[in-house]
Design a protein around this nucleic acid. Structure first.
Lengths: 222, 222
DNA sequence: GCAAAAGTGTTGAGATTACACCCATGC
DNA sequence: GCATGGGTGTAATCTCAACACTTTTGC
């Protein structure tokens, strides 16, 4: 039977890879560990799951503690259980990834950590635990899922131009897309709705759009 | 820091959804729970992960204990952490799914369980824990993955005919495929190699094939 | 007026689908 | 000889990729 011998067993943690787009770069939120074997190293925010809390609740809590944000796209990524991940103890880590909109307020300070900062995913430092692998895994999942779902909605503000949307795709996928084909496809899928207003700037004004649904939908985008 | 308070924390288990094809049906291995709140109910085989064992090792162990089989396709499915899954305790369950070849010897008996049997996935009973959800999840993953990988190799014996291969796809996907298109596509992809011999039976003999690689490859099959 | 991004259709290639007849065997 | 699954090619359709010029604005 289960759950009888509670001592001498692995513990459970969640770690959250929080992506955002900032300043033309794809970034993730990292925290700097204060002490222990990984002191001074950066890691994804996370923590032990207390008895009675669901994994998704723990991940959501972690996310809102670090960013103040709620109601964003959050997905379970993978569970890492190698006993050697953490030299201190056998911790099974359930990794999540989250997408938070551009231009989020700066990360909240947390006395548990030395620092909390956004880092460009292309230049991550050597991370604590197995978090460099987690980062690769998260990025791979994000790339594939972007192509067959509408989850990009969670990276964008409520209103945006088609150019901005396309730049997000290009940034994450790491390749440029044909503008006419992209617009045609996206519009035909009915994921967007023109808002009737325009964004003015240094160049020709661009029509503003909204997502018709701000909830996950499986759809072949690219 | 992590791993300090080990008492009063959720425990970790693995559960394995083992698929096979038998008698023209897609089946999964179920065990009948002996006692506790779920006594007499069927469930997927699983058990607690001991300190120091990796998740994949625990799943592999569970698989070989129940079937005597090794070296089959095994993939992590999802981690279920709802505290109410198991009324007895908060157990975080990491679910795996495995594909074992047709015509496997009958499941090994295990004194931990009342019975161990193969069940048609189309007619599963009401299962213990949240295992009916796990079953749906596993089946959905199997269906999508079948279409873009070669993992079907793990459901088939070393040699097989194209007709047998096609029947496996049709069975799992629940729809019929065009024979000529199917054969053309599969052969062009180079996943198979004709073995030069034929299987004789009540009708016209069919050419025997082998997989060129018996390891997972991502490839658009359908 | 010039630099920069917005906006807009068509064509060709390749991939996918639909479809029908003969063959080899066991009984 | 007949019932059953094995084996094979082509045409129509659809999807995807490539491609260039005009417009609007701020400076």
């Amino acid at each position: 039977m289960r759950g009888t011998d509670r001592k001498r067993a692995p513990t459970v943690a969640v770690d959250v890879v929080i992506f955002t787009i900032d300043d033309g770069e794809l970034k993730t939120l990292l925290v700097q560990v204060k002490d222990g074997p990984f002191a001074k190293r950066w890691a994804f925010p996370g923590g032990l799951v207390p008895l009675g809390e669901s994994l998704e609740a723990a991940a959501t809590r972690e996310l809102s503690e670090k960013t103040g944000i709620r109601d964003v796209y959050l997905e379970q990524l993978y569970t890492f259980g190698d006993p050697d991940r953490d030299p201190h103890a056998h911790v099974v880590s359930v990794a999540y990834f989250a997408l938070v909109p551009h231009a989020v307020r700066p990360p909240l300070d947390d006395p548990k950590y030395a620092r909390v900062e956004w880092h460009d995913v292309r230049h991550l430092p050597r991370l604590a635990y197995n978090h460099n692998s987690v980062a690769e895994y998260a990025l791979a999942r994000l790339r594939t899922k972007l192509a067959y779902s509408n989850i990009v909605y969670s990276l964008l503000p409520p209103e945006f131009t088609l150019g901005e949307l396309q730049r997000v795709y290009e940034l994450i996928l790491g390749r440029s897309l044909d503008r006419r084909n992209f617009r045609k496809k996206i519009v035909e899928l009915g994921l967007l709705r023109a808002v009737g207003r325009q964004r003015r700037g240094p160049h020709r004004p661009a029509a503003l759009y909204r997502f018709t649904r701000r909830s996950p939908v499986i759809v072949e985008v690219l």
